[in-house]
Lab assay of single mutants.
Amino acid sequence: GPGLTDLFKTEKAAVKKMAKAIMADPSKADDVYQKWADKGYTLTQLSDFLKSKTRGKYDRVYNGYMTYR
């Protein structure tokens, strides 16, 4: 089956995709945050998933999740 690194890459891609969806349409934020909360994502995990070469690119999404939880 898929190894943990593959799983991480898949999760990371999914999280980034959802983060971009929030940035494009902030009204989606609560739905996405709820999904992440259901998956039990911690802020540390989210921070790892949303690492970007562009500093602060996903800060709004991260901060939103922090206040959501």
Rank of each mutant, 00 (worst) to 15 (best):
G3T: 14
P26C: 09
A21S: 09
K17Y: 08
V15L: 03
G56N: 09
Y65F: 06
D59N: 06
S52K: 04
A14Q: 12
K57G: 04
K17T: 08
A21Y: 08
K39D: 05
K12V: 07
Y65G: 01
A29Y: 02
V15M: 03
A19T: 03
D25W: 04
G56S: 07
Y58T: 01
D31M: 09
L50N: 00
Y58N: 02
K39Y: 10
L4D: 13
L50F: 04
Y58G: 01
G40K: 05
D31W: 11
T5V: 11
Y33I: 01
P2W: 02
T10V: 09
Y62R: 05
K53N: 11
A14N: 11
T67C: 15
T42F: 02
F8A: 10
K20C: 07
K28T: 10
K53A: 09
S47D: 07
P26I: 06
A13E: 10
L46K: 00
R55I: 13
D38A: 12
V32D: 01
P26M: 06
T54V: 10
L43I: 06
K53Q: 11
Y62C: 08
G64A: 04
K12H: 05
D48E: 14
K17A: 13
Y68F: 14
R69I: 15
I22V: 13
D25E: 06
K53P: 10
D25Q: 05
D6T: 05
G56V: 05
A14Y: 10
K28A: 09
T67H: 14
Y62G: 02
S52N: 06
K51H: 08
N63D: 12
G3H: 12
A21R: 07
D31K: 10
L4K: 12
D38K: 09
K39L: 10
T67S: 13
L4T: 13
A14M: 14
D30M: 11
R55A: 13
G3I: 14
A24V: 11
D30F: 12
G64Q: 04
Y65R: 00
A37T: 09
F49E: 01
L7N: 15
V61I: 12
W36Y: 01
K28R: 10
K17L: 10
T42G: 04
T54K: 11
K57H: 06
W36G: 00
A29L: 02
S47W: 12
E11W: 04
R69D: 04
F8H: 12
K16P: 01
G3N: 14
Y62T: 11
Y58R: 01
G56F: 06
D25I: 03
D59S: 08
R55V: 14
L50Q: 00
F8N: 09
A21W: 08
R55P: 15
Y58Q: 01
K9E: 13
G56A: 05
K12M: 13
Y41T: 03
S27A: 09
G56C: 10
D38R: 08
A21F: 06
K9N: 11
K51I: 09
P2S: 11
R60W: 14
K53W: 05
K16Y: 04
Y58D: 01
Y33V: 00
L43R: 04
D31F: 15
V32Q: 03
S47E: 10
L43V: 08
F8Q: 09
A13I: 09
M23D: 03
D6V: 06
Y33T: 00
R55W: 12
F49H: 02
A19E: 00
Y68S: 03
G3R: 11
T5L: 12
I22F: 01
T67W: 14
L7K: 14
A19K: 00
K12G: 06
Y58H: 02
Y62F: 15
E11V: 06
T44F: 09
D59M: 07
G1D: 13
G64R: 02
K39G: 03
L4A: 13
A21V: 09
S27W: 07
M18E: 13
A24D: 12
S52A: 05
L7I: 11
L46M: 10
L50R: 01
A14L: 13
R55K: 12
L46F: 02
T42K: 04
G3A: 15
D48K: 14
K12N: 04
D48M: 15
L50E: 01
F49A: 06
A37W: 15
V61Y: 02
A29D: 02
K16N: 04
G64F: 02
Y41A: 00
A19N: 00
A13N: 06
D25G: 02
G64H: 03
K9P: 10
K20L: 08
V61P: 02
G3P: 11
K57M: 08
A19G: 02
A24M: 13
G3K: 12
D59G: 05
K39H: 09
T10A: 13
K20W: 08
K51W: 10
G56P: 04
Q34T: 06
Y65Q: 00
I22E: 00
K53T: 10
K12A: 14
K51A: 08
R60I: 15
Q45M: 13
K16W: 04
L4F: 12
M18Y: 06
R69K: 13
E11N: 05
T54D: 11
K9W: 11
M66Q: 14
K28G: 06
T54Q: 09
P26L: 07
Y33W: 03
K9Q: 11
M23Y: 04
A29V: 03
K28F: 07
K16V: 13
Y65A: 00
K39Q: 09
R69M: 15
T67F: 11
A14S: 08
A13M: 10
D48S: 15
V32Y: 06
N63L: 14
A13W: 08
L43P: 12
G1A: 15
T5M: 07
K57N: 05
G40D: 04
G56E: 06
T5H: 12
N63K: 13
R55L: 14
D6Q: 08
K57I: 07
K17Q: 10
L46D: 00
T44C: 15
T42R: 02
D48V: 15
M23N: 04
V61W: 02
D48F: 15
R60K: 13
Y65P: 00
K17P: 01
S52F: 05
T10M: 09
E11Y: 03
M18G: 06
Q34S: 12
T10I: 14
P2F: 03
P2I: 11
K16T: 06
A14R: 12
Y58M: 04
T54A: 08
A37K: 07
T44V: 12
G40W: 02
Q34L: 06
N63I: 15
S27T: 14
K12E: 07
V61N: 00
K12D: 03
W36L: 02
Y65H: 00
A37F: 14
Y58W: 10
A19F: 02
D59Q: 09
L43A: 08
E11I: 06
W36T: 00
M66T: 06
L4R: 10
R69Q: 15
K9L: 07
V32E: 02
V15N: 02
Y65I: 01
D31R: 10
D38P: 00
N63H: 12
F49N: 01
V61K: 00
D25Y: 04
A29E: 06
D6C: 14
Q45I: 09
V15P: 00
K17H: 08
G1K: 09
D30K: 12
T10N: 11
R69Y: 11
R60F: 15
D25R: 03
A21L: 12
K53C: 07
Y62L: 15
G64Y: 02
G3D: 13
A37V: 14
L7S: 15
A37C: 14
K20N: 13
G56D: 09
K12I: 06
D38W: 06
G3L: 15
M23P: 00
V15Y: 01
D38I: 07
D38L: 08
D38Y: 06
W36D: 00
E11M: 05
M23Q: 05
F49I: 07
G40C: 06
P2N: 12
T5F: 04
W36P: 00
K16S: 04
S52C: 10
K17C: 12
L43H: 04
L4Q: 13
D38E: 14
K17M: 10
R69T: 13
Y58F: 08
E11A: 06
M66V: 14
A24L: 11
Y33D: 00
M66A: 13
G1T: 14
D6M: 05
T44Y: 09
M23L: 14
D6E: 09
K17R: 13
L50K: 01
Y68D: 02
Y58P: 00
Q45C: 06
A29Q: 06
T5S: 10
K53F: 07
K16L: 12
K39V: 07
Y33A: 01
W36K: 00
T67R: 15
P26N: 05
W36R: 00
F49V: 04
D48Y: 15
D59I: 07
P2Y: 02
A21M: 13
L50A: 01
D48C: 15
R69E: 05
K28E: 05
K51T: 11
D30R: 10
T10L: 09
K16D: 03
I22S: 02
K53G: 11
S52T: 10
K28D: 03
K16M: 09
Q34P: 04
M18P: 00
R60C: 14
S52P: 05
G1N: 15
A24C: 13
K12W: 04
T54P: 15
R69G: 04
L4S: 12
G64W: 03
K28Q: 10
K20I: 07
D30Y: 13
V15S: 01
S47C: 12
K12R: 12
T44M: 14
F49D: 01
D30W: 13
T67K: 14
K53R: 13
D6S: 06
R60Q: 13
D25S: 04
W36V: 00
T42E: 04
T10H: 12
R60N: 12
F49Y: 06
D48H: 13
K17E: 09
F8Y: 15
S47M: 11
L46T: 02
Y58L: 03
F49L: 09
P26T: 05
K35M: 15
T44Q: 14
